[in-house]
Design a protein around this nucleic acid. Structure first.
Length: 288
DNA sequence: CGTCCACGTCTAC
DNA sequence: TAGACCTGGACGG
């Protein structure tokens, strides 16, 4: 899915399109198993904010302070798109209707979710770009926990500590950090402060470049995307999906393909990466 | 035609 | 820690 950068761009896009518009209803596509969004008022404005891989929509009754908050995730393929009256896109699953058109949540694979919620999910950490100090504190105060026994390549996808980091961002962060990605997260985060700053700067860069030119995600500002930006993205992606890089299936959930610098395959039967038990790709795979 | 793969969680054994 | 949840594009026979 969209990762941190794409979620921030989605929030920006919603704020831009919803500005100076009044909406009157929310319609759910019947094919989607999610809950209906019942709004007890007609005539509302929409604003959006992202935090890691979550998106908070605030629907405010027009000329009132009455609000409803909708907490969303985008799954693997979710994005927002403004569509003119009468246009119905196949994979639109939530439609925020106004007189002149609608703001649609489009999600081919339907992994995206929504629910009414007053606040961000408790089991997800602060945003590494927008709440950097909190993000660092949250990890440093908890480094003693068992989660951090695991290799840094795996822990970087744990949304409790690295909210917003997904499969391409972890690859790009660890590639730049230039550390053995199979060492324990505790050791990596203790010895290599650069990981913290990379967790801010890499997603920030991806955000400034307009997000991933990846299969399922549409850049909301696609009409502003110029050739320079595409070239910029090509320069930015140094590891994920690149020829010559190594991959392995990790231990996250169903198993995700981890992209890393092949230099870390060297000497994998030795103990030089200092992580007891999981010093190398081979040892890591044996652990499974 | 079929199998594999994709920017992510969830939950059931 | 496997599946489950989904669609569709790429590629093989």
């Amino acid at each position: 899915m969209p990762e941190l950068a794409e979620l921030r761009l989605t929030a920006d896009y919603i704020n831009q399109e919803a500005q100076n518009r009044v909406f009157y209803s929310v319609k759910k596509n019947p094919v989607h198993k999610g809950k209906e969004v019942e709004i007890q008022f007609r005539g509302f404005t929409i604003s959006a904010e992202s935090r890691g891989k979550e998106l908070m929509l605030t629907l405010t009754q027009f000329n009132s302070s009455h609000q409803v908050k909708l907490l969303m995730t985008m799954g693997m393929s979710g994005y927002f798109k403004w569509v003119d009256v009468g246009v119905l896109s196949k994979h639109s699953h939530l439609r925020f209707q106004s007189e002149n058109g609608s703001l649609d949540f489009v999600d081919v694979r339907r992994f995206g979710k929504w629910k009414l919620a007053e606040d961000w999910s408790e089991d997800r950490g602060p945003d590494p770009t927008q709440q950097f100090q909190d993000f660092v504190r949250n990890i440093k105060n908890n480094l003693h926990k068992k989660d951090f026994d695991k290799p840094i390549c795996e822990v970087l996808m744990n949304q409790k500590w690295f909210n917003g980091i997904g499969n391409y961002l972890r690859a790009e962060i660890l590639y730049r950090a230039d550390i053995n990605p199979f060492m324990s997260a505790r050791e990596a985060l203790t010895k290599h402060n650069s990981i913290f700053s990379l967790c801010r700067t890499i997603p920030e860069t991806a955000y400034m470049l307009g997000g991933g030119e990846l299969k399922d995600w549409k850049n909301p500002f696609q009409f502003d995307t110029i050739e320079d930006v595409k070239l910029g993205w090509e320069e930015f992606m140094k590891c994920y999906g690149k020829p010559g890089m190594s991959t392995m299936i990790d231990n996250n959930g169903k198993g995700r393909r981890f992209w890393y610098d092949p230099k870390w395959n060297y000497g994998e039967d030795q103990d030089w990466c200092h992580y007891s038990g999981m010093p190398s790709p081979t040892a890591y795979l044996k652990q499974k």
